[in-house]
Structures are given as C-alpha cells and as structure tokens.
Computed example of a mutant assay.
Amino acid sequence: MSTAATSTVPRLVTPQFVLLGSAGLAYFLADGMLVPAVPRYVAGQLAGGNLAVGLVVAAFSLSALILRPWAGRLVDRHGRSIAMIGGGITFAASVAAYGLVDSVGALSALRLLTGVGDAFFFVGAVTAMSDLAPAERRGEAISLFSLSLYAGLAIGPPIGEGLGGLAGFGTVWLVAAGSALVAVLLALRVGETREPTTDDPGDQPVRLIPRAAVVPGLLLVALVWGMAGFLAFVPLYALDLGLPGAGFVLFGFAAIVVVIRSVGARIPDRLGAVRCVRVSLLCSTIGLALIGGWPTVPSLVLGTAVLGIGVALGTPAIMMLALDRAGAGERGAVMGTVSMSIDLATGLGPATFGLVAAGLGRGSGFLAAALVAAAGLALAVAGGRRTASE
C-alpha cells in the first residue's frame, strides 16, 4: 500500500532538473563574483566617486528590470533554451569586455548589456523549471531551484574578492565570463522544456503584463520590499543597538531561508499557495514590526527569525500562485513579470526605507516596511476571499 502511495507522487529530481539547477548555480556564481568586484573596480581602477559607483551598479538592474516582460514573451514564443543560451552568451561577452574599457560611461553601457543577458537567462531558466515541475510539487521545485541562486550569491562574492586581490580585476571578469559559459553549456544539455501546443502564439492577443501575474507581482513586491530594506540597513541598525556588527544576524537570516528552502521545500505544496502566501506575509509583517517597534537586541534577533520564515515561504508560494493562474502558453510572460517585481522592490525598498529613516529614525524605517508587508497581507486575504466566492 505504501508502495502504491509512493508511486502516485510524480518525480521531481530528474537528470534534466539537476542539469538546470547546475546551470543556474554556474550562472549565479558568475553573477555573485561581480557583486563586490564592480564597485571596487569603479572606485579604484576608474577613480570614480559614489555617484559613479551607483550609476554602474544600477545600470545592470535597470536593463534587467525593463526587459524581463519582453524576455517572458520571447520564452513563450520561441522557447526556454534560446533565452538561456542567448542570455548566457550576452552576459559572458559583456563581462569579459569590462577590462577593455577605461571610463565609467563605457562600463555603464556594458553593464546595461549584462542586464540584458541576465533578463533572458533568468526568465528562461525559471520558466524551464516550472515546465519540469509537476503541478503538485511546484513549491518544492521553486524552493530547490532558488538554492542555486543563494549558493551562487554566497560563494561568488568571496571568490570575486579573492581573485581581485590575488590576480587583478581582469581575472575576475574572465573567470566570471567562463562560469557563465559553463551555464550555457549546461543549458544546451537541458534542451527545450516548452510543452508542445497546437495553439499558434501569433494568433493570440499579446499582453506584455499578463493578468495572471498582476496580483502575484504585487504580493512579491510587498514581501521583498521589507527584506531589501532589512538587508540594506540592518548592519547600521545593529550598531545603533550597541552590537559590534550584524554578521550573526545576517547569517541567521540566510540560514533560516536555506534550511526551509531545502529541508522544508515541500511546505508550500502542503499548505497550498494561498494559505502559504498569507502565512509568509504575516510573518514578514510581524518580524519587521518587532525589529522596528522594540529597539532591543532580543527583538532584533526574534524579528529577524520571523522575517526569515516569511521570506523563505513567500517567494515559492507566490510563484506557485502565479503559475496556477497561468496557461502553459504564457508561463514565460508570467515569470518575467513576477521576477520583475523582485527588481522593483529591491530598488524601492531601500530607497523608501532611507527616506523614512532620515526623518524619523531607522526603527521607523522597519515599521514602514512592516506596513507595506501588511498591505500585501490584506491583498492576499481579499484575493483569497474573492477566489472562494467565485
């Protein structure tokens, strides 16, 4: 009887899924190497000031943000593989060329091109992941795939810093480009995952922002908004509370996310997308309110833990919600729009936090972020009621 029950559970971790996760790891490792290297290169080799550093770093996010919906449409029309391969090659070529320019303007132009590559590779990869995941295991698939992002962005920066110190920035650019090309080779092995369909996408009405992505996109903005502000300002807030630094707080936050996304990968599937989104936004609201409302070290630690639970559960659940509402022919567009919400919140969260903190203090910045998460929770509750009544 147990054998029959086990056989009804569709398989998730196939060789193709492992190859896709490996491609994601190689790509995010390349991306992670650039995180510390680019600002240091601008400030050191190019003798740029704070404005120049901000311009070069932001150029990547700008093009990636704008192009994700278009990348999603290309993925739906022409396949996931072409987006991953083309995006990975564009990323690698632009990064390899960093060492050939000697001005902030030229490097900013290359960074825009790097963002183009990121938009297409990421949307292609996350859509391919949704193709390979059985519907009842999508939350688990998203959780596991996200570990490649966290691993790459955890390991990549130390590698970038080490290579830059030992062999110079030129070596960092070439190694990062090589890692991106490894991702391309692995993507070639993954192949095309788009499901065959009898519909001609050219005959369908085209929506750049599909309806299925609007509410999940707003929910993801509400979730990531507070997380982005937390990551940007908790190092300074820890000093305000008399701590020597925020290293153990940030490590604890990351550890909670990684443990839940790995050991607890099936939690979103078992709870269901709607319920899990509500739990995640409730945790985010409480966690941010604890940090900002009670400026003590125990509240910071407890609030960080609760926020970590919310973030760990929220992204997989929100993407599940989006995929459940999307047809097979618009998965790319939906994933492109939903992932664009991450870029948007990552930019707006720290900016608004800073504005509030400048006038009312850093604790108030966390409380403002808690209000944004609470607004997302209200939207999730209202959306769930509307769905139940239909």
Rank of each mutant, 00 (worst) to 15 (best):
A388H: 11
L62W: 10
S108I: 07
A378F: 05
A333K: 12
G105I: 11
S143V: 09
R189S: 12
G264T: 09
G327L: 05
P205F: 06
G21F: 00
V215T: 14
T90D: 01
L367V: 13
G336Y: 08
A187E: 03
G21V: 01
A374S: 04
A238S: 13
E161N: 10
G308A: 15
M129G: 04
P134L: 11
G384P: 05
I82M: 11
I318D: 03
G229H: 07
G336Q: 11
D324P: 11
G24W: 01
G86C: 05
L185I: 12
G376Q: 00
G217Q: 03
A246W: 01
L20I: 01
V35T: 13
P39K: 05
A213D: 05
S94A: 15
A246E: 01
V53Q: 05
D240T: 11
D203M: 10
L62I: 15
G384S: 08
T6H: 15
G308W: 07
R138D: 07
W70S: 14
P295F: 10
L51W: 06
A351L: 15
E136P: 06
P316Q: 08
R189I: 03
A222P: 04
A125V: 02
V263A: 15
G170Y: 03
A305W: 14
V301G: 09
A380M: 02
P134D: 14
A128H: 03
L185W: 12
A4C: 12
L241A: 10
A345P: 00
P244M: 00
A370F: 05
R385S: 06
G329A: 14
Y27P: 00
